[in-house]
Amino acid sequence: MGITQSLFWFLSVLALVAALMVLLSKNPVHSVLWLIVVFFAISGHYILLNAQFLAIVNLIVYAGAIMVLFLFVIMLMNPNTETEPRKNFLVQIAGIVAGGCLLTVFISLVKQASEMNNKTALLKTGNIGLIGNLGKALFSDFVVPFEISSVLFLSAMVGAVVIGKKN
């Protein structure tokens, strides 16, 4: 087993364990920190797939900006973890069973799909993930959605200010 395979398994296990810990930890701050671990693991996967631009953007946008926003909101509210209400036991079991059923259906579907056989995702090579190629495509074929997304950001900013301000 080469170093690439070892890295793949390590990052996968890290992502899954951290995702489970997001659910299982009682304190919301710990959940945020575990979610940052998930994002780092997924960024590692992107680097392994040679999607370097997405790896950096994932780190900056998700682990940097969005998670800091979450932390700020949690600290603003200061929820005490002892009084946090839990759903009753039956509802939790029902949720877990429903998720398990969904996962089973998905996995059986993937197992049946014959067009997935012998297909591999290219690791460490290929240059479509480099920022030069992505930038060329972004500013030639995708320039209209790119400009529209700036309008989306403006409206999101105005909406957040309007919703969040005290009246």
Partner: peptide, 17 residues
């Protein structure tokens, strides 16, 4: 990962989680 997210949405009551 997607299923873990779905289970979290179904089982937790904290809006931030």
């Amino acid at each position: 990962l997607f299923t873990i997210g779905i289970i979290g949405v179904l089982t937790r009551r904290n809006a931030i989680i």
